[in-house]
Simulated scan of single mutants.
Amino acid sequence: MPARTLAALLLAAAPAAAQEPTARQTPFHGYERAVELTLGSGRAVVAPEAGGRVLSFTAGTAEAMWLDPAEKAWKPGQPPPSSAGRFDFGPELTVPAHPKTWGGDWSAEVTKDNAVRLTSPRDDPAGVQLVREFRLVPRGALVGLNCKQTMTNVGKEVREVCHWGRSFSPGGGICVIPLGDRPSRFPSRYAMYEEGATINVRNTDPNIRERDGFLEILAPPRKPKLGFDTYAGWLAYLMPNNVAFVKRFPTFPDRVYNEAAGLTLSVWYPTGPRIELEPIGPRERLRPGESASFTEGWWVIPFPYPQAGERADLRALADRVARLTAAPE
């Protein structure tokens, strides 16, 4: 289907709110216990095997996830390929290893309102157990996916943790990050992770451009891992098929963010077929038995990809995000 036709169909579709969501267990490649969620033009496939991930999120025929070809040959007992809609918790430099929550075999439950709840095994070395709830939500003709992660301290000591989103989308697009109305702590408006633990906050890169109150990552930069301290609460990834994958997430200017550079958002854009889009939550100080949750809202919206020699209309993008998407509940 031509990309512009797809965008027109997304906007012209019947209101999703008038339809009922469905959820059913269905095999997806080697994932026998995958659950498919559908509502209007929206579809998500989540799997409890190999780390409790979103394997597919589509609006119409537009796919927001990048799935490693190795996923098609995945078998139970194998480690999870590094792809698709992953989540995690940090701080990444100090959190203990947690292989059971990262790539273990989770359980799945379809709820009465046709959402799905995935529950991790206990990861005793890290003292954390995770629950992820996925729900399709309507807004006019469009459908978003709310992804809620709950972190519970199942250990005997106080734990300080934070949410990390780590989903992969297909590479080759433009990542747009609104800077918001608060000044950045970073002179370059972003931090670039150099070799080792060095974090460069005065970097310049020809593939990263500041314009009209936004940062644009136009292509893979000199070093792929970038961090941001924006409180705008969303980012958009423009894809060449004339859609934008939008993530909305809450931010908390008066709370502590406990990553090394106090990040609210990270992007990993290496050379190759994928980009990683990573909302980060604030510090959660959990006593034994306490829990904290963080929700990301995912949307695929029509937006024209700039042709050669053109620039994306970033103000129009911000307006479309505000009109067509909803903040996660």
Score class of each variant (00 low, 15 high):
59 A>G: 08
76 P>N: 02
82 S>N: 12
62 A>V: 04
65 M>P: 04
86 R>G: 02
82 S>Y: 14
73 A>V: 04
92 E>H: 15
66 W>C: 05
90 G>I: 04
84 A>Q: 09
88 D>Q: 03
60 G>S: 03
81 P>H: 00
72 K>Y: 08
88 D>F: 12
66 W>V: 07
56 S>T: 11
67 L>D: 09
85 G>S: 12
58 T>W: 09
87 F>C: 12
87 F>D: 15
60 G>R: 02
76 P>Q: 10
70 A>Y: 02
61 T>F: 06
66 W>T: 01
69 P>C: 13
62 A>L: 08
56 S>I: 07
58 T>F: 01
82 S>A: 15
76 P>V: 02
71 E>K: 07
75 K>C: 06
89 F>T: 15
85 G>E: 00
92 E>T: 11
84 A>G: 06
66 W>D: 11
87 F>I: 11
69 P>N: 09
66 W>H: 15
89 F>K: 10
71 E>V: 01
74 W>Q: 02
75 K>E: 04
73 A>Q: 14
68 D>A: 12
56 S>C: 13
90 G>S: 12
86 R>S: 02
64 A>R: 13
68 D>L: 08
67 L>A: 10
84 A>N: 06
76 P>Y: 07
69 P>S: 11
74 W>A: 01
67 L>V: 14
80 P>R: 06
65 M>G: 09
75 K>I: 09
75 K>S: 13
57 F>T: 00
73 A>N: 10
84 A>C: 02
72 K>M: 08
64 A>V: 02
64 A>Q: 11
88 D>E: 14
76 P>E: 01
57 F>Y: 15
58 T>D: 00
72 K>G: 06
60 G>L: 06
72 K>C: 14
76 P>R: 10
57 F>M: 08
75 K>P: 11
91 P>T: 08
91 P>F: 00
64 A>E: 14
58 T>L: 02
64 A>N: 14
83 S>Y: 07
69 P>G: 05
62 A>Q: 13
75 K>L: 13
